[in-house]
Design a protein around this nucleic acid. Structure first.
Lengths: 221, 221
DNA sequence: TAGCGGTTTAGTACAGTGTACGGTACTGTC
DNA sequence: GACAGTACCGTACACTGTACTAAACCGCTA
C-alpha cells in the first residue's frame, strides 16, 4: 500500500536547490527559509539537512544553479559576438533571478558551474588574442557593468516597457517644484516617453565597452 | 544627582543612524540588529523605535548616509574630470561601507542626500552639453560600472595590495591539474604578481568608458 | 522469519530576530 | 495640583536557523 508520503518525489540535493531557486524567484530571497522550503517540498525542516550542510550551502548552491543556466561562450567564435551574447545571457539570468546578484557579494566559494563559466569566458578572450593583462582588465570591466546593471535593474520599482511611466509619474509630479530639475527633465523627456524600458539602456553601455575593447586589440592607431 | 544613564548622550535619529553605520562597518550588515544597536548605544531595543519607524527605515537611512559622505560634482567643471572624480568618490565610499551596494537593490525610496547626488551628477552632464538621452545612457553606464565593481570588490576574500597572493595561491595550486587552465594563467601571470591590487582595475574600465563618452560628444567623425 | 546497521525522516527545543502593545518616568503649562 | 506631551523601556509573540534525539524505513545476513 502506498501512502501519500511515499508517492512524493524523493528528496535530493538537486531537488532541494531547484526548489530553493523557484521559491526565491516567486517570493524573494527573504522568503527562502528552511521551513517554507521544507513545506513546499512536502517534508519537514530538518530533513533538508541531510542533503545540505546548512543554509549557506543552499545559498552557494542556488548561485551556482543560476550560472549553470547560462550557455557558455565558445572560444573559437568571434570574440565580440561571443562577449555580447554572453553579456545578454548573464543579464537575462540575473533578471530571471534578481536575488542572485545580491548573493554574489556575500558568497565567496564559487561552484563548478560558476568556474566553468569563468573559464570559458577567459578562454574566449585569450583565444582571440587578448593578452593576459588585457583579459583581466576586460573581464573585470564587462562583469562590473553586467552586475551593476543588474543591481540597478533590481532596485527599480518597475519592470519592463512602459511600466516606468505609471510608477514614476506621480512621484515626479511632486518634484516639479524645482529642487531636482534635472531629474525631472530626464524623467519627463526620457523615462516617461512611451515605449521606454530601462533594459534598453544595457545595449548602449555594452556597445561602448566592446567598441573600446576592440580599439585596444585591433586598432593600429 | 546624575546617574550613569543620564550622562549618556541623548538619543536622536542622527545618532541612531550614525551608530548603525559604524556597527555595519565594523561587524557587517548581518550584525546590525535592533538589539545589538541598542546595546551599543546604551539603551534598550524598543527605545530606538521612537526615532525610526522600523528596521527598514534604518536601512534606508544608512544608505542615504553613505551618499551624504560623497562630495558632489560641480556642474560648471570639466565634465570628464568631474565624472572621474565622482566615480572614485563613490567607489571609495562603497569600499568604506561594503554593505551599501547590497542594500541598493532592495531599498527603493532614495533619501535626500541620494537625490542631491543624482541631481548634481545629471546637472554636470547636461551642463557639459550632453543631450537628455545621452545623459541617461551615460549615467546608467557609469553607475552600473561603479556599482558592479563594488559588488566584485565586496565578493573578494582579500582586500588591498598583495593580499590576493596569499589567499589565492593555495587555491590555485589545487587547480593546476588542468581543468581551469585559463583561470590559473590569469592567477599566476596577473593576480599573483607582486603589487597586484584588484582595485587598480577600476581605472582601466573607467578610462575606457569616459573615452567612449568623449567620442560621442565632441568627435566630429 | 528475525535481527541488524546504515539511511532517511521527524519531533522537540533553544537562542536569536523584528516589533506590537502597554506601560513609566520626566518636563512644561495651565 | 491636574494634565498633556516627550522620551524611554519591559514583556510578549511569531518567526528564524539548527542542534539534539528519536523513530521509521531499507536491504541485508542468518
Amino acid at each position: 500500500m502506498t501512502t501519500a508520503a511515499s508517492q512524493r518525489l524523493p528528496l535530493s540535493r538537486e531537488r532541494v536547490l531547484a526548489c530553493a531557486v523557484a521559491l526565491a524567484d516567486e517570493s524573494g530571497i527573504a522568503a527562502l527559509t528552511i521551513r517554507t522550503l521544507a513545506q513546499r517540498m512536502g517534508t519537514k525542516p530538518m530533513s533538508l539537512y541531510y542533503y545540505v550542510a546548512n543554509k549557506d550551502e543552499i545559498l552557494d548552491g542556488i548561485v551556482d544553479m543560476v550560472f549553470s543556466e547560462i550557455e557558455l561562450p565558445v572560444p573559437e567564435g568571434n570574440w565580440r559576438e561571443e562577449m555580447q551574447l554572453r553579456a545578454h545571457r548573464v543579464r537575462s539570468a540575473l533578471r530571471r533571478h534578481p536575488w542572485a546578484v545580491g548573493l554574489l557579494e556575500n558568497r565567496s566559494a564559487p561552484g563548478p558551474a560558476t568556474l566553468r563559466h569563468h573559464e570559458a569566458t577567459l578562454a574566449t578572450l585569450r583565444t582571440a588574442g587578448f593578452s593576459v593583462q588585457l583579459t583581466a582588465h576586460a573581464y573585470a570591466l564587462l562583469d562590473s557593468y553586467i552586475y551593476g546593471f543588474a543591481v540597478q535593474e533590481a532596485a527599480l520599482p518597475f519592470e519592463g516597457r512602459d511600466t516606468a511611466a505609471e510608477i514614476t509619474k506621480p512621484i515626479m509630479e511632486r518634484f516639479t517644484t524645482g529642487e531636482y530639475p534635472r531629474m525631472v527633465e530626464i524623467a519627463v523627456e526620457h523615462v516617461l516617453k512611451p515605449g521606454y524600458d530601462f533594459g534598453d539602456e544595457f545595449e548602449f553601455g555594452l556597445d561602448l565597452i566592446l567598441d573600446g575593447l576592440s580599439r585596444l586589440t585591433a586598432d593600429p592607431g
